[in-house]
């Protein structure tokens, strides 16, 4: 969104305000992804509550799904851990509600796959998402071709619809991908699944430049970003860097042999978030 638009947009959403503030501060943002309920609901909430202070500018919460076809081993395992610990979509929304009791500022975006939402019912899901203070949705298996399913009703309900663009989204297709996007555009910097390959700095810079020719929407870049150094590099060209698998791996590294959270898990994960955010000071 341009400066002029920000000025005239009185009812600015949390997500719009966050990106406007980042722009004003002259720095890129850190978007963190963690799977809801990984490794259990209580620990998951403890991490979430600490994220804003640790430097997460936008909080992505993964809705666990049994068949995450665009995710690599790290996030697949996180999903299974959460499901095995009893996580559901309804409880994911409850988690957001619990988080919102103490934090009214941090933008929260739910990310996942369509079936659990479809199963709950689009209307019921959206009503609850709005009620608990969700700001936007990223649904991996809903391309523009399926916008009638959730994109249109979600936008009507006042939620941001964050679209994924990829290296295979060429200039001819890009307008279609950008048409209904709001909040930010999530650029998937590699062809592949989460947490595996990493894009080169040159590729990211070129891709972001190409996207900027088509849109004013803030651009977050994700997939394969695992270190503070990588966050800094992406932050130099994009509006935000997304870290997911590396964070989820940090959760895994703090589990005992039975798969339960070791004491200090949340602190360790939050320490890593601080380290990642450290690269983004203006």
């Amino acid at each position: 969104m341009s400066d002029a638009a920000v000025a005239t947009h009185l009812a600015q959403t949390r997500l719009e305000k966050r990106f406007a503030d980042l722009k004003a501060a002259g720095r890129a943002g850190l978007v963190t992804y963690l799977t809801a309920g990984d490794p259990d609901a209580a620990t998951s909430l403890e991490i979430l509550q600490g994220l804003p202070a640790a430097g997460a500018d936008v909080i992505e919460i993964g809705m666990p799904f049994s068949d995450p076809m665009a995710d690599g081993p790290a996030i697949q395992a996180a999903s299974l851990r959460a499901l095995n610990a009893g996580m559901t979509l309804a409880k994911t929304l409850d988690l957001v509600a619990a988080f919102r009791q103490a934090d009214r500022e941090a933008p929260v975006v739910l990310m996942g796959y369509y079936n659990p939402i479809y199963s709950m019912g689009v209307e019921a899901f959206l009503a609850r998402a709005v009620e608990v203070g969700v700001d936007g949705l990223i649904v991996v298996d809903l391309p523009p071709e399926e916008d009638r399913e959730l994109c249109a009703p979600a936008r009507a309900a006042g939620l941001h619809w964050i679209r994924l663009a990829t290296p295979t989204t060429d200039d001819a297709r890009l307008p279609r991908v950008l048409a209904e996007v709001s909040g930010f555009l999530y650029y998937v910097s590699v062809m592949g699944i989460t947490g595996t390959k990493s894009a080169t700095r040159e590729h990211v810079a070129e891709a972001v430049a190409r996207l900027r020719r088509h849109t004013d929407t803030p651009i977050a870049v994700g997939f394969g970003i695992k270190t503070a150094e990588a966050v800094r590099e992406v932050g130099a060209v994009a509006d935000a860097a997304v870290v997911g698998s590396a964070l989820v791996e940090r959760v895994r590294a703090n589990l005992d042999e039975a798969g339960k959270a070791r004491p200090g898990l949340a602190d360790d994960v939050l320490g890593f978030v601080r380290e990642l955010a450290g690269g983004l000071t203006a």
Partner: peptide, 12 residues
């Protein structure tokens, strides 16, 4: 039916 796939696959 439909086409419920990730954006990376859509062009293909």
């Amino acid at each position: 039916g439909g086409r419920f796939v990730a954006e990376t696959l859509m062009p293909l």
